[in-house]
């Protein structure tokens, strides 16, 4: 049985990991394997971990406001490593217009504060169904 593997990472300098942990817990409870890498991760560390762990999804959590530099950097590094098949999602305090731009750059989904964890679980499961994988 192939299990969905998700890397949950916090790029940048903010130390607020409650949201990341809540999401990680919800995904675990939904039967996924969650690799949690902790705080203060550089985009390079995140991409390297994602490759070694062969994850299907990366979930980035960021509340510091640096999403427009750090999220695109993750996408660039994935492309450089020929790993753009890994789905990238994000969460945090991200204005609507930034979210749209990030999706334009290749992120699959951005969730704001207060998103029910069920919504995230369902989204990932649907995207990972055989046939839905790109």
């Amino acid at each position: 049985m192939r299990k969905i593997r998700v890397l949950i990472a916090k790029p940048g300098l903010d130390g607020h990991d409650r949201g990341a942990k809540i999401v990680a817990r919800a995904l675990r409870d939904a039967g996924m394997e969650v690799i949690y890498t902790g705080l203060h991760q550089t985009p390079e560390m995140i991409v390297e971990a994602a490759i070694q762990e062969d994850v299907d999804v990366i979930g980035l959590s960021l509340l510091s406001g640096a999403h427009m530099t750090l999220f695109p950097r993750v996408l660039d590094l994935l492309r450089e490593n020929d790993a753009q098949d890994i789905m990238v999602t994000g969460g945090g305090i991200i204005p609507e217009k930034d979210a749209e731009k990030l999706k334009g750059l290749g992120m699959t989904q951005i969730w704001g504060p207060g998103t029910p964890t069920d919504e995230i679980v369902t989204f990932i499961k649907e995207k990972m169904e055989p046939g839905a994988r790109s």
Partner: peptide, 11 residues
Amino acid sequence: FTGGAFLGDRI
């Protein structure tokens, strides 16, 4: 129970 796992050793 769910088969899920929280893998945190990398931290």
